[in-house]
Every structure is written in structure tokens, then in C-alpha cells.
Design a protein around this nucleic acid. Structure first.
Length: 1137
RNA sequence: GCCCUGGUGGUGGAAUUGGUAGACACGCAGGACUUAAAAUCCUGUUCGCCGCAACGCGAGUGCGGGUUCAAUUCCCGCCUGGGGCACCA
């Protein structure tokens, strides 16, 4: 009886479906185990051999755990919303729901073929209203929550409202009373700045021609990848998730989960926590002075980029400021107590340095300086000094008010009123502050008066030779003097056409001087402000301080633009490349001179904080997650916009169904397609939809309780199943999906909806299976065609790989050979008008190539006979021409045997597996040919699951042979059943138990490839021993169940009766594999020279004696005495001479 | 550019904690069975040198250094394939 895998597999798959063998209950005495695969997107291309890799791995583990006595949840479903279906809809007019449904059916059919143990009664689809109802519901919970930093967790927004009502907000500068007086709209605006799901303004890549928003990788060199149309940045209202508030918890959580170190590192880097300082650099030229400014700028004749022409003892003014703050005059004290804490409605600072002056009081919001004159201001010299100071302050854009001591002391009310009036007046003349909304851009606030940078190295403050501001920084348009406008605008136009990716990756140094200067806050040194594409508005503050001697990128920038470099680290800087050391002793660094850099960091921060020009700051590279898409095929937001205020729909109205649309094209102004529906717009509903990761951020919870109509998941059920014990998927989800779903889980936990705050306890990464592409080489005709030329007469000539290669390398012989052939063919075809050609490389379907040999006959039938008349120049130079009429069909090379066996050799390259590259291998054809069990085991046998590798079908035969060999331990072709009840020998038991141990260990650590090898070794050894004993075979079959469930079920049913999937994993017994001696490798100076078998229980002394007595050892010793003998018990012996 | 990851025979890979490099399988070569083929079985197979063979010798885990009695494994520098870089999923 032969191994009839097709019958067996069909039989058992039907049996399992009929008996609902994989249906899992939410209540069980057994311990639970949750195995989950990352949500697949049902693409139109169907499954290729890369997809099942992870599913087979999880299936093996799930089945293994079941044999080990666990109640195993192993569900599957579909991340069914997504762009490809929408793109297909735009191109073909098919509703995404329809194409998605078809794709899912196809996926399901393919998966069923492979014999997975999924509990299909729990299948999910994110596009199903019964599912997305709860996605919308969770979104509303996020919308109605804020992150309370004190509690370090999310809370209902009502607790925040309570705080505002009672205390107001210090950070946002309003009192409880203010809050009560705010309009509802204003209150909502403020609350929006705290909601976990919030609305803001964000920039997208907008392609007018395609009428759509593009992903970064769809933008190449400033134009769309599809079509090559121009792309610009467009600001759109967007939803965001406040994931940055969870940054610290996402970092801490990594310590509690079993992810690979690489994965943890990637997430840590993505979050990008860095500790440093935010430093404010005052601007040298006030943006308020407009046109007048450049004249001054020009007049000032700044000496290049070097030091300004006045020198300040900054330590002096700094010390003065501090001392004077400590010892204020009476008048100053009185005025300060009237101005402090925003009593006037304006924020004043006292003894604040402006360049090298120190203003008594200053309000940076309205550019107002207040001077209180003591008696000594009456001298002529002092008067002059005051005038210079006033005019400089005026130059900088400040208005100065002067009061005498007497005025302040006696008429404080009038003084304060005057100040208030002036401030209010100034405020009106100020350019309107841009209200950017609560978007993620950090560029708002008091732009226009100073540049704020974030740095992890405040100790290098005196090495700042330039600043780089993001070209899209709002400050730019305000600070650029007219004579610099043109080049700056040109540069900004260039940057606008670039995707973020391109900007970051650009090796070429680009940038543009803005014509404006900032001042070093400590010594007033002028610092030129540049813009460059490598600084992004979204990172940090959107501006960096350039320290060329300490940072490689800054160094290159300075060198490229000839910006003089200040060396603050002495010998550590060699003038050639930057040195990021923290160990150098600072030079040219004012009050830091002589200090070790790492110590200076804290000192600088202390001074920054003292002088209120900066502060210690934790910065995250991670930005809030953009959570809306201007697309159709996604979850609608349950939000209405009334008078610019977002109103959540009542939960009773969920789900908000995705409406039908006539066209899937975007709406006006880059809005989503939903904006095209009059009724939708009339209801003032949000026209964006949610992104792909919305549904996949919580799906693991829905699997636990998929049919619940009352809640997203019953708490008791989620308490039972708890975390996913094993999550399998690719590293491509390392930072996207995994971080989002971790954040959602933490939110749900904070809100008391689930009982754990990390979704995935253990993560296993599966590698990608790449495609191995094959190429053919076709002669492409170049030449002049007559107008009436009949193109069908043009012959198709294909040359084998080596001919093409040598042709490319210009080898005479090949060129002549190809030329001859070409001329002959052209002549036969009666073509004389052209004679030149090139050779182009074309993908050919890997399925009609055996290794690298093209199956010529199959190729001729490929693509409806496109190449049926092609002529082939084969590897040996012979020509394979089309049949002349009446000539009998020739066998292709693979039919072998007849005539000369020359072949057409294809080119090979490893690429992504993709339909368009004709390198996809469909699992269906392999399952059809070899069976699901062979396919499963072969995918595992290919190598470690977590490693990427190109697919090669060669080798599947070996696994198939193994299963046939296993079968022959049970059945003989002639005799039929051959197993017996005989008592197993020691040798047989040893083979069995060695295998049990290996399979158990390997399965537990996901080393499935070595487990398959162990099965092969076991079957080989049992075959050699001619062991057909039930005592051995039965445990073997149980062990095999996770890997090859069909054949195991069949053999087990015959052998023992019953269902193997409910059996128990065999127990390993050490006594059967115990060894008493070991064949030790004996090395001389680390090189193995011989082997000696020695009992395992002898001492080092005895081993040395035995080893030295050995003949080979004697020979190598050449009479010398060994210096040292190393003996590692059970491992090896090494003799050092 | 930045972050992560891989590189071992003709091929996929093994070597679990620094201890016999190449398990297992493919392919290839030779042989057995057969009229023949398929299927199956047996033998050999890292490279080089010597040799009828056995034995033996040398080199060898991307490249160049280092640590160690001993390195595929640890350290430093480089080359190179793959994944990610925020709207592909």
C-alpha cells in the first residue's frame, strides 16, 4: 500500500471540519495558550509560499501545545480595509467590499489546503460593520480620554475638566475663572489639545494630477512614482493619536515582554528618548521691522560669519544679572511684585540679557523693555550709554519704557497702567500669531523673537557656529531679509518637492543661508541661521545648533559652506573630522573653560534655567501617530463637526456605516471620497476615514469574544485568555503595528476595560521568503522601419545567459555568433532595412524554469503563445528554431534522452516575491503535487523561521521521500501492514527517546528546521534497524502530528485507533539514552589529531595518562613534554606543547 | 544617511553556553534492482597537495586585524545582501 497523500489529506480535512475539531471553548480546566499570527491583508495576488511560513510555524506550535495539554486559541481573520482594494476600485470600478470578499475566499481556500488548526468560527474581518462598530467605539473612548501625567495613565476627559474648573492651567496660562468664562468652542479647543485621539493640522504629500495623497515611498525625486506627476506638501486637518504621552510606558513595557533584543532595540530607537536641553537663541534682527531691516542689516556689515564687532564679557553680565536679581533696588522690587506672575496679563522677566545689555524688565511677547533709572543715570556719560542702549534695543525691535525710581515708588499704579497700555498697544501691531491648532508641529508659540533648539549636548554651546532651521519652520518667512528672499524661496521650493525619506537620506549637502542671525545667549556672538532639508520640522523643535567640531554632520555642513569652525575641544579636534567625545576639556568656552565636557552639561543646563533661557528637556523622536486618511475604504470616524467643534456620535448610533459612493476618487481640496456624498456632508460627518492600523490595533481581543454584541470583548473572557502567549509575524511590523497595538492595549487597560497592558507576551519574527527571479535575454531591434513595415515579420531571438554575458563584455566570438544568427534570421524574413540591436533582460515565469534551465516548450506556450515562434541560441551555440511545417514535435530538454542535450540558461536574481516579477510560487501547486504535509515540512526544513531566504522548490523531494520512508515503516507495498507488537530493543528505545528529547526542545525553541532533520534521522535509523514496532511507532506518530498532521492522523488511527490530535506528547526518559563513554577528540595545539574513547567517569589524571599513551599523540609530541593538558569532561581534550 | 539583521561546500542549511566545522537534505558522480523507465536501495561528494588506495599534510565559516590552550561563536575596522524609516500592509 502506497502513501496516497491526496486521499488521506482530503479525508482528514473533511473529518476535522465535520467534527469541529479545532473549535475552542472560552471555559476549560486546562491551562490556556493563545497563539496568534499577524493579521493578513487579503491581497488580490493570493497567498504565495512566503505567507504560510509563519502560519505553519504557529500551527505547529499550537498543535504542540495542544498535545501538551493546553486549551489553545489559534484564530485567523483578515485586515480587510486597505489601499490596494481601493486602488483596484478606482481602476476597475469594482466595490472594494466585493474584491475583498473574493480575495478572502481565495485566501481561505488556499489556507484550508494546508491543514491549519484555526478555529474558523472566530474569523474576523475589520471591514465588517459588526467589527468596526467596536473600532469606532474604542476610538470614542480615546477621544473622550486624556493622559494624566501625574497618574501616568489615561483618564476620562471629565477629570481634566474638573481640574480646569478648580485650578485652571498653569501651562496654558488660564485660571479657573478664565475657564468658566471661556466659550464652549474655546473650551473644546483647549480640550482637543489633551485628548488621546485629537484633531490637528498635518502635512501630506499631495499630488494634484493623481488627486491623491501619496506615501513617502510613492514619491521619487519630487514626483509621483506612478505617472511622474509633481508632488507638493499640503496642510490638511488630520486626526492623531497621542502616542507620545505613552512613550515612557512603551519603553518600560519592553522590559516585561519576550521580544528579541533586536526588536526591543528597534522600538527603543524609534521612540528615541533623549535627555538634553532646550535652548532659546534670541534673534539678532527683529522680524518686526520689515523692509527697514535689510537696510540696517546691510549697513551693519557683519564681518562674515565670525564674531560680532563688539565683545562682551558674558560672565560679567551674567554675574551682574544674578547679583542684581539678588540685590534689587527698592523701586525694582516694587515694580517686580506688580509685574510678576502675569498680573498684567503679560509675562515679564527681570534682569534679562538682550545681547550684551541687561534689561531691567522685559516682556518678550510684545517686545517691550522697561528700564528703571536710579540716581546715577543723570551723568552725561550714563545718558550717552543709555541712548546707545535704547537705540540698539530699538534696532532689535524693542520698545523701551523708562521710569524713575520715584515714579515707581510713589505712583506704582500709574506706572503699571502705562506698561499695560503700551503692551496692549504693541500686541495689536504684532503680526498675528499663527494658531496652528494642537497639531504635532512644535513650531508654534513665540516664533519671531527667538529660535528654540533641542540639544543633547548643551556643553558645546560655545562651539555653535551656525544654526539650521527646518525650511518649513514658520520663523523663516519672518526673518529672511528681502535681499535673501529669492534664494531662500528657491531652496524651499526644492525642499517641498522632496519626501521626508529623501531629505533624511540625502548624502549631498544642501542648504541656504537665510541672511538672519541668532545670538548665542551666553556671549552674544552672532550665529548665521541656515535652512537645510535634513532638519525636519517634526523632530525636536525643528531647529538645531550646529557644532562642527563635535558633530560629523555639522562638520560636513560647515566645511561645505565654508563656515569658520570654532574648536572648543583642543587636541580632540584635528580639523579634518568632528569628534563627538564627552571627555575633552573645554576651551574657547567662556565660563566652561577647563571643564570636562560631560560635567559641563549639567552646569550649562543650570545656567539656562537660572536665566530662564532654556531648560532641561526630555525629547522623543517619536511623533504622534497620524490617524486619518483621505480615503474611502476604511472605518468612518463617529464624529460630527458642528461650528468647527468635533462632537462624538452617541455610542447607541454605532456603527456609523461606510456609505456607498459613486466614485472612489478624492473629494474637493484633498478631502476623502466621503466628501463627495451630499448627505454625508449635510450631516456634517467627518470625511476622513481611519488608517489600516485602526482595526489591527485591537483585533487580538475580538478573537476572544468574536460574537459579542454588547461589548468589544467581555472582561471575564479577556481575563481568561489574557495576553497573546505567542505572536508570530514579520519584522516589517516592528515599529508600526506593534507600537500602535501596544498603545491601544495600554489605553484600554488604563480605562479599566482589560486587565493587562501589554498585548503580546512573546513575539516570534518570521523571515521573509524572497523570490528567486529568472531572466531571459531577448534581442531588441533598433533600426529604421519603413512606413509599411510588417512588424509581425520581426523574429524573436533569445540568447542563453552566457552568450548575453559575453556579448555584454564584448567578447568577439559571441558577438560574431550572435551577429551571424541575427543576419541569417533577418535575411530569411526578408528584412534588410535594419541591422542593429541590443539585448534586453526580461523576467520569465520561474515555474517554467527548472533550476536555471528554461523549459522551452512550456515557454512557447507561456502568455498565450507570445513566444511560440521564438528562436533560441542555446548555451552551446546551437540554435533551437521553430518547427517547419510538417515537422514532428520535438521534445524539450526536460523530456531528455533524444539528441544533443543543450539548454537555454536563464539569469538569476533574488528579489521581493511579486506577481509582476513572475517569481511567485503558489503553494496550491506544491500541495497538489506533494501534499500538504510535505509542503508544511519543507517550508520548515528550508531554514530557521526567523531568517529570510529566497524560495527554491528544489529540495522538496527530499522531504517527500522522508514521508514515504516513514510510511514504509508501517506499510509494505506487497505485504500491507507490517507493524507488530514486539518488544522494543534498547537500540530502538534509544533512537526514540533521543528523538523525543530533540523534537520537544527544538519545537519549544522554534527550531523547526532541525526538528524536521531529527525526524529524518529517526526514520533513517529505524529503517536501518528494521523496526516496525508499535511501541516505537506510536509515540513517533504523535510527535509528528504538529508537523505533518494528516499522515500522523491516518497512521495513528490505524495503529492505535482514535484521534491523534487529542493524544498526549510522549514523555522523554533519560535512562534510554544514557551513555557510559565518549569518543573524545584529542587536539594538539588546538588541532584535532585523533579520537580516543574514554569512560565518562574518569578523572583528569587518568585521562591525561590515557591520552599521552596514545600512539598518534606520541607521534605529535616528538618526545617533548606537554606544557598543559586541557580536559573538558564530555567535550574534548587539548594538549598544548 | 540612520536603526535592525544576515553572510558557512555546487545549493538550503547544522554546530543550543568558546570545545571534533559542514549534521540533515538537495544536486552531482558511480553502482544495484529492471527488457527499459519510474520508484527504491547502496557508495562517494569542502577545497588543494601526495598517492593505486588507505593513511597523511595544508587551507578553510564575507574581508583584514585582535583576545584565547581553543573562535562560525567574543572584540575592533571594513565589504556586502535583506528589512524598516511614520499614508504599502
Amino acid at each position: 500500500m502506497e502513501y496516497r497523500f491526496r486521499d488521506i489529506e482530503k479525508k482528514w480535512q473533511q473529518h476535522w471540519e465535520k467534527t469541529q475539531a479545532y473549535k475552542v471553548s472560552n471555559t476549560s480546566e486546562k491551562p490556556k495558550f493563545y497563539v496568534l499570527d499577524m493579521f493578513p491583508y487579503p491581497s488580490g495576488a493570493g497567498l504565495h509560499v512566503g505567507h504560510p511560513l509563519g502560519y505553519i510555524a504557529s500551527d505547529i506550535y499550537a498543535r504542540f501545545k495542544r498535545l501538551k495539554g493546553f486549551n489553545v486559541l489559534h484564530p485567523m481573520g483578515y485586515d480587510a480595509f486597505g489601499l490596494p482594494a481601493e486602488q483596484y476600485a478606482i481602476e476597475h470600478g469594482v466595490h472594494p467590499a466585493i474584491s475583498t470578499e473574493q480575495n478572502i475566499n481565495n485566501f481561505r481556500k488556499q489556507m484550508d489546503n494546508i491543514g491549519f488548526c484555526f478555529d474558523w468560527s472566530r474569523e474576523l474581518r475589520t471591514s465588517d460593520p459588526a467589527y468596526y462598530k467596536w473600532t469606532q467605539w474604542i476610538f470614542l473612548q480615546l477621544f473622550k480620554s486624556w493622559f494624566n501625567p501625574k497618574a501616568n495613565k489615561a483618564e476620562s476627559i471629565t477629570t481634566l475638566i474638573g481640574i480646569f474648573e478648580n485650578e485652571g492651567s498653569q501651562a496654558e496660562e488660564f485660571t479657573a475663572a478664565d475657564w468658566k468664562n471661556f466659550t464652549e468652542k474655546r473650551k473644546q479647543e483647549i480640550l482637543m489639545g489633551h485628548r488621546l485621539a485629537y484633531c490637528g493640522i498635518g502635512e501630506v504629500n499631495w499630488c494634484e494630477a493623481l488627486g491623491t495623497v501619496l506615501a513617502n515611498d510613492e514619491v521619487v525625486n519630487g514626483v509621483s512614482e506612478r505617472g511622474g506627476y509633481p508632488v507638493v506638501k499640503k496642510k490638511l486637518r488630520q486626526w492623531y493619536l497621542r502616542i507620545t504621552d505613552y512613550a515612557d510606558r512603551l519603553l518600560e513595557g519592553l522590559e516585561t515582554v519576550e521580544f528579541s533584543d533586536a526588536m526591543k532595540e528597534m522600538q527603543t530607537n524609534w521612540i528615541g528618548k533623549s535627555i538634553g536641553a532646550e535652548i532659546q537663541f534670541p534673534l539678532s534682527i527683529s522680524p518686526r521691522r520689515g523692509e527697514e531691516m535689510e537696510e540696517i542689516g546691510a549697513k551693519l556689515k557683519r564681518p562674515g560669519f565670525g564674531y560680532p564687532d563688539y565683545k562682551v564679557d558674558s560672565e560679567m553680565s551674567f554675574e551682574n544679572a544674578k547679583r542684581m536679581r539678588r540685590e534689587p533696588t527698592e523701586a525694582e522690587s516694587i515694580l517686580w511684585s506688580a509685574l510678576r506672575s502675569k498680573q498684567t496679563g503679560y509675562k515679564f522677566r527681570r534682569q534679562h540679557p538682550v545681547e550684551n545689555y541687561i534689561a531691567d524688565f522685559i516682556c518678550l511677547d510684545v517686545w517691550l523693555a522697561i528700564e528703571v533709572d536710579g540716581g546715577y543715570h543723570t551723568t552725561v556719560e550714563q545718558k550717552e550709554a543709555d541712548d546707545i542702549r535704547d537705540s540698539r534695543l530699538k534696532e532689535l525691535g524693542f520698545t523701551t519704557l523708562r521710569f524713575t525710581n520715584e515714579e515707581v515708588i510713589n505712583k506704582i499704579d500709574i506706572v503699571v497702567e502705562t506698561i499695560q497700555q503700551k503692551a496692549t498697544e504693541l500686541k495689536k501691531t504684532l503680526p498675528p500669531k499663527t494658531i496652528g491648532g494642537p497639531g504635532p508641529s512644535p513650531l508654534q508659540g513665540e516664533a519671531g523673537e527667538r529660535v528654540t533648539v533641542f540639544t543633547t549636548r548643551p556643553d558645546t554651546i560655545f562651539g555653535v557656529d551656525f544654526m539650521v532651521v527646518a525650511p518649513e519652520h514658520e520663523l523663516i518667512e519672518k526673518i529672511v531679509p528681502a535681499n535673501h528672499k529669492l534664494p531662500v524661496e528657491e531652496y524651499i521650493t526644492y525642499v517641498k518637492s522632496r519626501s521626508e525619506r529623501e531629505r533624511i537620506a540625502e548624502k549631498k549637502i544642501t542648504g541656504c543661508f537665510t541672511g538672519a542671525y541668532a545670538l548665542n545667549p551666553f556671549n552674544g556672538r552672532e550665529i548665521p541661521i541656515w535652512i537645510s532639508e535634513y532638519v525636519l520640522a517634526g523632530y525636536g523643535t525643528g531647529a538645531i545648533m550646529g557644532v562642527p567640531c563635535g558633530d560629523e554632520r555639522d562638520h560636513k555642513f560647515a566645511k561645505h559652506f565654508n563656515i569658520p569652525i570654532t574648536n572648543i575641544i583642543g587636541n580632540y579636534y584635528n580639523g579634518e573630522e568632528a569628534n563627538a567625545t564627552k571627555d575633552a576639556i573645554l576651551e574657547n568656552s567662556d565660563f566652561l573653560n577647563g571643564m570636562v565636557m560631560r560635567d559641563a552639561i549639567g552646569v550649562v543646563i543650570g545656567r539656562l534655567e537660572d536665566r530662564e533661557i532654556g531648560e532641561r528637556k526630555v525629547n522623543y523622536k517619536m511623533r504622534d501617530a497620524a490617524f486619518s486618511r483621505q480615503r474611502y475604504w476604511g472605518e468612518p470616524f463617529p464624529i460630527q463637526w458642528k461650528d468647527g467643534v468635533a462632537i462624538p456620535l452617541p455610542e447607541s448610533e454605532l456603527p456609523l456605516l461606510l456609505p456607498e459612493v459613486d466614485s472612489y476618487s478624492p473629494g474637493p481640496d484633498g478631502e476623502g471620497p466621503l466628501a463627495n456624498i451630499p448627505e454625508w456632508v449635510a450631516r456634517e460627518l467627518e470625511t476622513n476615514t481611519m488608517p489600516g492600523y485602526a482595526g489591527s490595533s485591537w483585533y487580538f481581543l475580538r478573537y476572544m469574544d468574536p460574537d459579542n454584541k454588547q461589548e468589544f470583548c467581555n472582561r471575564k473572557v479577556s481575563d481568561y485568555w489574557n495576553q497573546v502567549d505567542l505572536y508570530i509575524g514579520g519584522t516589517e511590523h516592528a515599529v508600526g503595528h506593534l507600537l500602535y497595538s501596544r498603545m491601544w492595549t495600554k489605553c484600554l487597560y488604563d480605562l479599566g476595560l482589560i486587565g493587562f497592558d501589554e498585548p503580546y507576551k512573546k513575539l516570534m519574527n518570521q523571515g521573509m521568503i524572497q523570490g528567486s527571479s529568472r531572466f531571459i535575454y531577448r534581442i531588441s531591434w533598433l533600426g529604421v522601419f519603413k512606413p509599411d513595415f510588417d512588424f509581425s515579420k520581426l523574429p524573436i531571438i533569445l540568447v542563453s545567459k552566457n552568450f548575453r554575458n559575453s556579448w555584454v563584455h564584448g567578447e568577439k566570438e559571441s558577438i560574431e555568433k550572435i551577429n551571424d544568427e541575427v543576419q541569417k534570421v533577418l535575411k530569411n524574413a526578408g528584412i534588410t532595412s535594419m541591422h542593429t540591436f541590443s539585448i534586453s533582460e526580461l523576467h520569465v515565469d520561474v515555474n517554467i524554469v527548472d533550476g536555471v534551465e528554461l523549459d522551452i516548450e512550456a515557454f512557447k506556450k507561456w502568455r498565450n503563445g507570445e513566444y511560440s515562434n521564438a528562436e533560441f541560441i542555446l548555451e552551446d551555440g546551437s540554435v533551437y528554431a521553430p518547427l517547419s511545417p510538417g515537422e514532428p514535435a520535438r521534445p524539450s530538454h526536460s523530456d531528455g534522452g533524444l539528441g544533443v542535450r543543450s539548454t537555454y540558461i536563464c539569469g538569476v536574481e533574488t528579489e521581493k516575491m511579486s506577481k509582476s516579477k513572475f517569481n511567485t510560487v503558489n503553494p496550491d501547486t506544491l500541495v497538489e503535487k506533494y501534499g500538504a504535509d510535505t509542503f508544511r515540512m519543507y517550508e520548515m526544513f528550508l531554514g530557521p523561521v526567523e531568517q529570510s531566504k529566497p524560495w527554491d522548490t528544489k529540495g522538496i523531494e527530499g522531504v517527500h521521500r522522508f514521508l514515504k520512508k516513514l510510511w514504509r515503516l508501517f506499510y509494505d507495498e506487497v505485504k500491507g501492514k507490517i507493524w507488530n507488537d514486539g518488544k522494543a530493543t534498547d537500540a530502538e528505545l534509544k533512537v526514540l527517546h533521543k528523538t523525543i528529547k530533540k523534537i520537544e526542545e527544538d519545537t519549544e525553541r522554534f527550531s523547526f528546521n532541525t526538528a524536521v532533520s531529527a525526524f529524518m534521522i529517526c526514520v533513517n535509523e529505524l529503517s536501518d534497524l528494521k523496526c516496525y514496532k508499535k511501541e516505537i511507532l506510536e509515540p513517533l506518530v504523535i510527535m509528528l502530528t504538529p508537523y505533518a498532521p494528516h499522515i500522523a492522523a491516518e497512521l495513528y488511527a490505524e495503529l492505535a485507533g482514535g484521534e491523534v490530535i487529542n493524544a498526549s506528547f510522549p514523555k522523554f526518559e533519560a535512562k534510554y539514552v544514557a551513555e557510559s563513554s565518549k569518543e573524545y577528540p584529542v587536539s594538539i595545539n588546538g588541532k584535532v589529531r585523533t579520537n580516543i574513547t574514554i569512560s565518562l567517569d574518569v578523572s583528569q589524571q587518568e585521562v591525561e595518562t590515557i591520552a599521552l599513551a596514545n600512539e598518534t599523540v606520541q607521534k605529535w609530541l616528538e618526545g617533548k613534554t606537554p606544557k598543559k593538558i586541557i580536559f573538558v569532561k564530555g567535550k574534548m581534550i587539548n594538549i598544548v606543547i
